[in-house]
Write a protein that binds this DNA or RNA. Structure first.
Lengths: 225, 225
DNA sequence: CAAATGTAATAGTAATACTATTAAGTTTGT
DNA sequence: ACAAACTTAATAGTATTACTATTACATTTG
């Protein structure tokens, strides 16, 4: 399995690690292993001790890289959104029509990635599942304000800004572009969680991508003057 | 301060408590106190020991009523959605026009409650803040499936179903009514959190209710044939 | 008024997030 | 070449906290 940190360089806020995990073999094993294990166990059941056992190192060595499992998860999330922002930039830069650009953006943000064609990284699907299942646990916290101060969410805020700009290219009069962007990004992940566990909260029909269809429909109808 | 459990009887799933807190004075103090304290401290920092100190009882006594703080939060959430479902039923039953009915429903679900006029309970605002800040922590979990089995989410699912039905009264052809309902309910709370902590993810203008306006606009444009 | 039941207090245990200290290996300057 | 300096990792903890077992007291009921 190819190492995902090696494949592309995404800058991650320095306050999220003690030692940059992309600079050593152990660091990369910690990141790769935590994606796998956190996805398996969920954030609560995931511990540094279990991770250490899994990748054959010690708990203390993991603490050399990450101050806490909270910050480790923030690191993964940051890294993920950095990748998505890069994908949107790359895959829309040659599209002229604002409508087509928005359609592509909605696709990237709401559809499940195809590991064959879409992925910048090897385990993007596992990472996306972590985003779906665990994001809220580090975002919706009493510590948001302090973490926001040191720039932990700047990647994410920039992404929402960019999507909002694409929305305004389609309709410059629309007054809630950031809300539309953030509610699509967060909502699409949540709808996927619901589809898997509480399907009565959704309208899952077949294996076609209903989440993408739902948001494409809503957004274009909302922006039509 | 009037006791909120006494004011209206909302049935809550029995698997959520060991002893029904509405049947004793201590039980009511536990519920009232936990709303106050959990809102102050947040779910992580909130402990049964701190609660016990606050309401002048013991940790063990709290464990008589609730198996864990996880289930206590689920109890509060269930009770809250029971209240909201009751409000929707009461406040829309005399409305004939489907559009007006939906407008009222969106208002109840997305606007901040006015304690003077809207509230069935004394501390609804504190409880709503808990819903906004802590819901995801017990909903988005590896245990959802088991908890779903014993009926913990039936109140919530019924609420989404009802709102979906109101949506289909406006446009019977719309094929994603449940997704539209659940994404509004969850999204409006999330947007409020963003507005308070990460305003760049939203479009907060003034003190008018932008969350309600945003969802009213989106939903009616989506349902227009 | 005694048996049964409800309520609460004491004093724990187990798990886990996190730290202090020490040991081993690697690099660098002269 | 080799000692000093620094990087990396292992051991063995501590502190917190969620949760439990047991006992004591109070209240209700036949």
């Amino acid at each position: 399995m190819q190492n995902f940190l090696a494949s592309i360089k995404i800058p991650v806020n320095e306050s999220l690690f003690l030692k940059d995990p992309s600079t050593s073999e152990l660091g990369q094993k910690i990141v790769d292993g935590s994606i796998e294990l956190m996805n398996q166990l969920g954030f609560e059941r995931f511990t540094f001790k279990k991770l250490a056992t899994e990748i054959q190192t010690t708990e203390a060595s993991v603490y050399r890289y990450f101050e806490s499992k909270h910050k480790l998860l923030l690191y993964l999330i940051n890294w993920y959104w950095g990748c998505i922002a890069t994908r949107i930039a790359l895959e829309t830069k040659n599209i002229e029509l604002p409508e087509q650009k928005l359609k592509k953006t909605i696709h990237i943000l709401t559809a499940l990635p195809n590991p064959e064609t879409d992925s910048l990284i090897s385990n993007e699907l596992a990472l996306k599942e972590i985003i779906i299942n665990e994001s809220a646990k580090v975002l919706i916290t009493k510590d948001v304000d302090e973490e926001n101060k040191v720039g932990v969410f700047s990647v994410y805020k920039a992404l929402v800004s960019n999507v909002a700009a694409i929305i305004n290219e389609v309709n410059s009069d629309y007054i809630y572009p950031n809300m539309l962007a953030s509610s699509m990004i967060e909502g699409s992940n949540q709808q996927r969680f619901f589809a898997a566990h509480l399907p009565r909260l959704t309208n899952v029909k077949d294996d076609s991508d209903f989440v993408e269809s739902f948001y494409t429909d809503i957004i274009f109808k909302t922006l039509t003057k």
